[in-house]
Simulated scan of single mutants.
Amino acid sequence: MPHLHANGIDLCYETAGNPSDPALLLIMGLGAQLVDWPDGFVEELAGRGFHVIRYDNRDAGRSSLLDDLGVPNVPAILGGDPATVPYLLSDLAADAAGLLGALGVERAHVVGASMGGMIAQQFAIDHPDLTASLCSIMSTTGDRAVGRATPEAAAVLMRPAAPSREEAIAGGVAASRVIGSPGYPAPQQELERKHAAKFDRGYRPQGTMRQYAAILASPERTEGLRGVKVPTLVIHGADDPLITVSGGEATAAAVAGAELLIIPGMGHDLPRELWPQLAGAIAGNAIERPRTGR
């Protein structure tokens, strides 16, 4: 896969669709990789007239691994000490802006899932001239009073790094069962293939902890989101246990004119059965909706 040097780091990316079509940037979540955007879903988006760009965030997959920044002290960060915070969500948003600049993209429809939704929100706040539309999926505003994980999902998030490939795959499958969509359970073999491919492509548990520190240390985005003026869609699973639905509701409430789509049976994943609905909603927001505003 190709790499570009942007914002001082190397970013691994992939594109799909016609380069002459409007750009649509996909941003993935905590510890996730560009392959966590399923190929079939990417094809759904490209088929609706977008040049789709997906990439690995810093500290994930095949983008720059920043081990020189050390391992953050999460308990200290939760206690208000930012000394070991390596970077913030605004830096991850700047990576995305740098990628678009290096690709010669002047403006993009920005779609993010989970932590990627947080980055997409920050991108729209920090880089309004680059943002054609915004879609935040299964994410939240940074207000810790909303979107709180269930105890079971929180335990999955904090599981220790696996000591072997086999245990990493088994742990990934088990985590997917906890946070995935109860209405659309993924086949066992599909989950095993997915987590095996992710491990082989780039298992970066220390990088995931640095990303998590960025989430914890970044300021709440509610006030910034009030200034977002592009068409905005918020998608959330009604049965998401990792970022519960109040996170999506708060996101939509913060952006004037935002559309909120809550999907029954959907958890914290992108079920195959929902790809046409999700892609259609994203395309409708990007192409058909007028710009928002007060």
Rank of each mutant, 00 (worst) to 15 (best):
Leu4Pro: 00
Pro264His: 04
Asp59Cys: 14
Pro290Ser: 08
Leu216Lys: 06
Pro151Ser: 12
Ile77Pro: 10
Asp143Ser: 06
Ser139Ile: 01
Gly104Ile: 05
Glu192Cys: 04
Gly29Ala: 05
Lys194Asp: 02
Asp95Glu: 09
Pro187Lys: 13
Cys12Trp: 04
Ile179His: 10
Glu249Met: 12
Lys229Ala: 14
Glu220Asn: 15
Gly101Leu: 10
Gly202Leu: 03
Gly117Asp: 03
Ile53Ser: 03
Leu34Ile: 15
Arg226Gln: 12
Ala238Asn: 09
Ile282Trp: 03
Thr251Phe: 10
Gly47Phe: 07
Asn73Phe: 00
Gly227Lys: 06
Asp95Tyr: 13
Leu100Ala: 09
Arg144Met: 13
Gly8Ile: 13
Thr150Arg: 07
Glu167Met: 14
Asp200Thr: 01
Leu242Gly: 06
Asn18Pro: 00
Val230Leu: 01
Leu4Ser: 10
Arg107Lys: 15
Leu242Ser: 14
Ser218His: 08
Ala168Ile: 08
Glu43Pro: 09
Pro276Lys: 03
Glu259Ile: 06
Ala76Asn: 06
Asp59Tyr: 14
Ala149His: 11
Ser63Trp: 09
Phe41Gly: 12
Ile235Gly: 02
Pro219Thr: 14
Tyr13Cys: 04
Gly31Asp: 04
Ile215His: 08
Ser63Asn: 12
Gln277Trp: 13
Ser63Ile: 07
Asp126Asn: 15
Val111Pro: 05
Pro151His: 12
Ile119Gln: 02
Leu88Gln: 11
Gly8Gln: 13
Glu106Tyr: 02
Val178Phe: 07
Pro151Leu: 11
Gly29Leu: 02
Arg294Ala: 13
His5Thr: 15
Leu26Pro: 12
Pro72Cys: 05
Gly104Cys: 06
Gly247Ser: 05
Glu14Arg: 14
Asp200Val: 05
Val71Ala: 09
Thr232Tyr: 04
Met209Gly: 00
Pro160Lys: 13
Cys135His: 00
Ala170Cys: 01
Gly79Thr: 08
Ile125Leu: 11
Ser246Met: 01
Thr15His: 00
Ala170Lys: 14
Glu152Trp: 09
Thr15Cys: 11
Val52Thr: 10
Gly49Ile: 03
Ala283Arg: 06
Pro290Trp: 05
Asp91Ala: 13
Tyr13Asn: 03
Leu4Cys: 12
Gly49Asp: 02
Leu261Ala: 12
Ile262Lys: 15
Glu192Ser: 03
Gln189His: 13
Thr222Glu: 09
Ile235Arg: 05
Leu134Cys: 09
Gln189Tyr: 01
Pro290Cys: 10
Ala23Lys: 11
Arg54Trp: 08
Tyr203Leu: 01
Thr244Glu: 10
Cys135Met: 09
Gly224Trp: 06
Ala93His: 06
Leu65Arg: 11
Ala120Gln: 01
Leu225Cys: 03
Arg221Ile: 03
Asp39Ile: 11
Val234Asp: 04
Met115Glu: 01
His236Thr: 10
Ala6Arg: 05
His109Thr: 02
Leu30Phe: 13
Asp59Leu: 10
Leu191Val: 09
Gln277Ala: 13
Pro185Phe: 04
Ala23Tyr: 06
Leu278Val: 15
Val111His: 06
Ala102Gln: 15
Arg272Phe: 12
Gly80Cys: 10
Thr150Asn: 11
Val105Asn: 04
Leu65His: 12
Pro187Trp: 04
Gly80Ala: 06
Met158Ile: 00
Ile27Ala: 08
Ser218Ile: 02
Gln33Pro: 14
Ala254Met: 09
Arg226Phe: 05
Gln206Arg: 11
Glu288Ala: 15
Gln33Asn: 12
Met1Trp: 03
Gln206Trp: 09
Gln206Asp: 14
Pro187Thr: 08
Val105Gln: 11
Gly101Tyr: 07
